[in-house]
Design a protein around this nucleic acid. Structure first.
Lengths: 127, 127
DNA sequence: TCAAGTGTACTAGTTTACATAGTACAGTTG
DNA sequence: CAACTGTACTATGTAAACTAGTACACTTGA
């Protein structure tokens, strides 16, 4: 399930957080689902339990999961909504990046090409 | 000229690199222009000379400036082209971010809104 | 000529974030 | 009751970033 790159410049605990978010968005993990335990993930990924726990604590802090001592950690009901809100906040970051692209002389058409590539080109008049 | 935030999570030398790139793109620094000396920037920003030197070395490595021992460092002729190429490579990063937006249920229209905000809406038929 | 400014190259030390190692405690479950 | 769970704590190692200080060779202007 999880894929960790220990050579990456991105901290391991952060990789786990990011991948968990992707699993939630992709529907691999749904509200109420139990995520792997700290110790089992520790063994599976060959990573120290403390590192996993750090990721769990961060996911909890973001309201994506809730932990029950003795039982496990579970995907929150409002996880998807929280993620959507967070990503919408990231549109501001994209705005800054687009300004850099424009300054660098990258054409609007080049940007739109990427947008169309990701979002498809369903531009029929009867939509 | 330069504005450094020592409390930022972004390393100081990287902030200097980024700001120098922006100055080049904005036309504040043009090909052949001399950039501030290591020691003068060190005093102006209250930063260790070694930190400045690290930024200078990185800018040199990226082909944005060239250094002449005893004289100073100057903006390269191909600095703008190098920056445009680098930013164009960043379109791939934007593609990944757009995929995340799409997965999170952020509408195509919301994305296009930001694009139009930055690039303007010059969509006349006679262009 | 020479003092001042320039890029560059070292060594040494501190601080911080990240990760590991080991131990411990309390709650849950079959 | 044994095995699992989340959580907390101390200690240690490592790497990156930054600071401090020194040194050398080159260029420039007075």
């Amino acid at each position: 399930m999880y894929q960790i790159d220990v050579m990456s410049r991105i901290p391991v605990y952060e990789q786990i957080v990011e991948q968990t978010e992707k699993f939630i968005l992709a529907g691999v993990l749904c509200a109420g689902d139990k995520i792997p335990s700290v110790r089992s993930l520790s063994v599976e990924l060959s990573v120290n339990p403390n590192t996993i726990q750090k990721a769990v604590a961060e996911l909890d802090r973001r309201g994506l999961i809730f932990s029950v001592p003795g039982k496990g950690s579970f995907v929150s009901e409002r996880a998807r909504d929280a993620l959507t809100a967070a990503k919408r906040g990231n549109l501001g970051v994209m705005r800054d990046k687009l300004r850099e692209f424009k300054m660098a002389g990258i054409d609007k058409s080049e940007v739109l090409e990427v947008v169309e590539e990701v979002y498809g080109e369903e531009n029929r008049a009867d939509d």
